[in-house]
């Protein structure tokens, strides 16, 4: 069996991995004399993070809001739809193909329609992030609901439990860890979804990281574009960590403690 690492060692290794990558990247750019417009050195990106911090922060606030609201919408609607599909064979048959089909629609096709309906504000971006994050939440939750031990439901039946009580006491708690796992998968792609959503346009003064990346590329400020990407990556790591923590707090039974009696 794989031995678990001490938490401090795990964090140190988690920092060391990216640092090694950055060192290799720095060495490559310097030794191969790569054009900074094509690929800036990590030190240039770091300099941009400091110099453009106000610009980057304002853009991050917008994108962060889109990601978190989109993700929350996906979690609520995705889990809700999964429960409906679990309870009703008709809903499942009707919406199953639709859920998969919508996932295949490219965002650039969808974005203009949503902007037309909802305007250039934050609305269409939240919808796009929600649509992208929706799929892993629905699939994971539905799968977990389907895999609940049927004997648990039968036992509750002998206690006179109603369908609603079986859902409340057995199926929902059993599906919770999987729904949060779905959200963890979703959060990794939510940032990309927000960036693409922003390409469809935004109101003056409410540009997020996506538009910042776009304008930086046009003005050949590649270091600023990379600084924005760096922020997106760190944000994804932090939100995934927050979800993992939520999973431990909300579903502690899903993490078996080492040394527990069997």
């Amino acid at each position: 069996m794989r031995r678990p690492l001490h938490p401090a060692v795990r964090v140190a290794l988690g920092v060391l991995g990216p640092l090694l990558l950055l060192a290799a990247w720095q060495a490559y750019v310097r030794l191969a004399d790569v054009d900074p417009i094509l690929l800036p050195a990590p030190t240039d990106v770091a300099a941009s993070l400091v110099d453009d911090r106000s610009l980057l922060w304002d853009a991050f606030v917008v994108t962060g809001q889109e990601v978190l609201l989109g993700l929350a919408t996906a979690l609520v609607l995705g889990a809700g739809l999964a429960i409906l599909m679990h309870l009703s064979a008709i809903v499942r048959a009707m919406l199953g193909p639709l859920v998969i089909g919508i996932q295949a629609v490219p965002i650039p096709v969808l974005a203009p329609v949503l902007v037309f309906w909802l305007g250039f504000g934050v609305g269409p971006k939240i919808v796009i992030v929600a649509i992208i994050c929706f799929f892993p939440v629905v699939i994971n939750t539905l799968d977990a609901l389907d895999r609940v031990d049927p004997d648990l439901g039968r036992l509750l039946q002998t206690m006179g439990a109603s369908r609603r009580q079986r859902l409340r006491w057995v199926e929902l708690p059993a599906a919770l860890p999987a729904a949060l796992s779905g959200a963890k998968v979703a959060v990794a792609i939510a940032g990309i979804a927000a960036v693409f959503a922003e390409y469809a346009g935004a109101e003056q003064g409410s540009e997020g990281l996506g538009l910042l990346i776009n304008s930086a590329r046009f003005s050949l400020a590649t270091d600023r574009a990379f600084a924005a990407v760096f922020i997106l990556a760190v944000f994804a790591v932090l939100t995934t960590g927050a979800l993992a923590l939520a999973q431990r707090l909300l579903a502690p039974w899903a993490h078996r403690r080492p040394g527990a009696p069997r």
Binding site: D151, L152, L155, T158, M159, G160, A161, Q165, W169
Partner: peptide, 28 residues
Amino acid sequence: PAALMPQRDLLLPWLDARDNVALPLRLA
């Protein structure tokens, strides 16, 4: 009306021992 004790304990993993014992009462 019968109460069942199954072969596998079928305790709900998300409830502690007290809440597992209390479960039929909550359902009632």
